[in-house]
């Protein structure tokens, strides 16, 4: 066998996985490209979903479709509120589960895991069953959505923060105590700053789960319309291209947050 052929085969076998991975990533991004493209579409007919002509109109008139911006506002409000509460409660739980002894610890682990392992339709219908049985069928709306979102975000927060916390070297806290920091100072100067990235990513995850949820929300929303519900309704009637503008903005904001965080981290390491 010639060396060149051998090298060629060797290069291919070394890189075939990487090439395949890049193709899969492309597949994952294709719909995102479509969303961005369609945000500049001027639809010819209401019912067909294809690119017809280029326009800036969708970007300059985001709120033109009836209820679109209201639904985004509802989703933002629910998302922020649910994220805040879920992150707080979930972080407390994670601390308890990693740092404290209590009875029924494995039961608690299973209890936290179960909501993640339940199909959304089951979670949503259970909640609806509860609300209906409790006589709340008439008041379904913003607050029932909020209650539901906190519930399903909570487990994800606990798991994320727990992972970060159990990866923390306990010697760091011991070192702080050894260096004259009392329990309170140790927590705020060492433990919290080190766990904070975990809490932050838990919050980001919560927000995107909440903002994106459709199945659970749809069952428990009453007359309130969130952004995914607006999209769902629009999909039956004809899709206004503005939803692609919202989708693109969400994508860009999230990307900026993640990349900004990453860049900031690198810069802090290099500059100082």
């Amino acid at each position: 066998m010639s060396t060149l052929a051998y090298r060629g085969r060797r290069w291919f076998s070394d890189h075939v996985v990487l090439i395949y991975a890049i193709l899969v990533l492309l597949y994952m991004f294709t719909p995102v490209f479509v969303v961005i493209l369609m945000s500049f579409n001027e639809p010819a007919a209401r019912q067909t979903y294809q690119f017809d002509a280029f326009t800036w109109n969708n970007w300059t008139n985001i709120c033109a479709p009836f209820q679109l911006c209201d639904s985004v506002a509802v989703s933002l409000k629910v998302g922020l509120l649910a994220t805040l509460v879920a992150t707080l409660l979930g972080t407390l739980m994670a601390f308890a589960m990693v740092r404290h002894r209590f009875r029924g610890r494995s039961a608690a682990n299973v209890f936290v895991f179960l909501p993640m392992a339940s199909p959304e339709i089951v979670l949503g219908s259970s909640l609806l069953a509860l609300f209906v049985n409790a006589g709340f069928a008439g008041v379904l709306g913003f607050w029932t959505i909020f209650l539901a979102h906190v519930m399903f975000c909570l487990s994800f927060v606990v798991v994320t923060v727990k992972a970060r916390l159990s990866g923390l070297d306990p010697r760091l806290e011991q070192a702080a105590m050894d260096l004259y920091a009392n329990e309170w100072q140790t927590f705020w100067r060492v433990t919290f700053p080190l766990v904070f990235p975990g809490i932050l990513s838990a919050a980001l995850l919560s927000f995107s789960l909440s903002f994106d949820d459709f199945i659970i929300t749809n069952l428990n929303s009453g007359q309130t319309v969130t952004f995914p519900m607006f999209v769902w309704g629009a999909a039956q009637r004809g899709i206004p291209p503005q939803i692609n503008v919202i989708g693109t903005i969400m994508f860009l904001v999230a990307l900026a947050l993640v990349l900004g965080g990453e860049l900031g981290r690198r810069r802090r390491q290099i500059v100082r």
Binding site: A21, L25, V32, M38, Y49, F214, A235, F251
Partner: peptide, 23 residues
């Protein structure tokens, strides 16, 4: 690459699914 795996997530689930209608 990890960011790229998560990034499509941030575009609404429903909106992305709709773009498969087009694709």
């Amino acid at each position: 690459m990890l960011v790229l795996v998560i990034a499509p997530f941030f575009t609404s689930f429903l909106v992305r699914t709709l773009s498969w209608q087009l694709l």
